[in-house]
Design a protein around this nucleic acid. Structure first.
Lengths: 245, 245
DNA sequence: ATGCATGTGTCAACGCCTCTGACTAAGCTT
DNA sequence: AAGCTTAGTCAGAGGCGTTGACACATGCAT
């Protein structure tokens, strides 16, 4: 097919119609973002990468921001592909957070652009619906359900988005950051930063997955502890009588 | 003083030395970011706003990124000004998260640039030290202390950063987003999104502060529930026996 | 089959950005 | 007072987002 396009190109000096589609453009955007990061992502570059004129994309997206929203929606779609609400609301929420994070980590640069946007397109709406469904099955009602939904969703998106923002920094900057744990913090003077000093050797060993599992477990415990109903599968029952402030 | 500079300027046709300092540049950056948002933030503009040549700032910061790091550090400094570790480790962690969020919300555009960066300068190191101190006072040890520290810190920074990223979007985009709760979601068809439909009327009423209080309380409960020691003030004791996965 | 409207690809150009290298002068050192 | 360092100035290179005009292929009505 690409060869057909090339041949066509040669004949007419112009790409044939339909060779640029929103879907292909988003595909190529993800590829380019994965390779070059967020700083190397420009519409001229993207156009050239697609073998078209640098400004060709403006026929399909009104602006770069418009394209970013399409990318955002694609990420949600990818993340939630094949999602089916589990019987247990706890499992459902854990699953959604895990999926979102996995997709964001697979495309950190794209995620860092998309994470704090709202598309209001079907993929997003469906996911919101599933989350709220889980919150309602947990027995939360009315205003409290709304607050719980927002708390969970904002937490999940912020955390996954924040991780991606870090992962999409210049690799050298990232490395410098990781080295900080093994370097600056390791040599942190006992006098200036006594507490850091106490755990300096274990700090570099902490892995992203551990951090995510820990914070997600805390949040889920919090939800279980506050929920009027136990979860459907019985595995997540909590005897917590958590002190509320 | 500004008048002196202006007069000086008039005489010589050039600003006197020392009229541009890193501190003043960061100050003006914050002001400009607050007013114009992140899209209107450029070094030429910043230079002109300071009454200097558009490229003058490159004498003080090697690059825009370099300036962003200085801004990041200033935000931490502002947030933590006058912080003194409370006797109770729970109060300390709540205080730090609240301060960080308050400062980020006061300068959302600046925060959205700075939130996922690490400066490793004194202001940041001091804060890290205080947080780790609190985690250790909670009785966490070694590797677990390191994981708990990272989980808390990453959560807090992501959440406050995510909120800022949203607040620093174009006001019209933001408004469209808020209206989604009152609009798209309110009219969400019962057939397509039945769960959204069930709580559609309460969704628009959820406020940022409620969300933050809720998620922070869940995380803090999680910390208290996992901590080997009760907190020092006795007010945060938890009888939780939270189910660990 | 013909001619036209529409949509898609191309192109030149505007104004803005980041950053550089050469130049100039302010103000300290001696 | 002379010299040196360095902050401020300036012209400009190269890139970006976006626009408006143009060109041409395709689908549709005739």
């Amino acid at each position: 097919m690409t060869n057909d396009l090339r041949a066509e190109r040669k004949r007419s000096g112009r790409r044939p119609r339909g060779s640029l589609t929103p879907w292909r453009i988003v595909d190529e955007s993800l590829r380019l973002l994965d390779v070059d990061g967020v700083v190397g992502f420009s519409l001229p570059k993207l156009g050239r990468a697609l073998g078209a004129h640098p400004t060709a994309l403006y026929r399909h997206f009104a602006s770069k921001d418009d394209l970013v929203l399409a990318i955002a929606d694609r990420l949600i779609e990818d993340a939630m592909a094949g999602l089916e609400p589990s019987a247990c609301w706890v499992d459902t929420l854990v699953d959604i957070a895990t999926r979102m994070r996995r997709t964001y980590r697979a495309h950190p640069a794209a995620a860092s652009l998309a994470a704090f946007r709202t598309t209001r397109r079907p993929a997003e709406m469906r996911t919101v619906d599933v989350i709220i469904g889980a919150v309602l099955r947990a027995g939360f009602k009315g205003k409290e359900a709304a607050v719980i939904y927002r708390a969970y969703a904002d937490f999940m998106l912020s955390f996954a988005g924040g991780e991606s923002s870090f992962l999409s920094l210049d690799p050298t900057v990232q490395e410098a950051d990781r080295m900080a744990w093994a370097g600056a913090y390791l040599t942190a003077s006992r006098a200036d930063y006594p507490q850091i000093w106490r755990i300096r050797t274990t700090l570099p060993d902490v892995e992203d997955d551990e951090i995510f599992q820990t914070i997600l477990a805390m949040v889920m415990d919090g939800l279980v502890g506050r929920s009027p109903k136990p979860c459907e599968c019985g595995r997540h029952a909590s005897t917590a009588k958590v002190h509320k402030k």
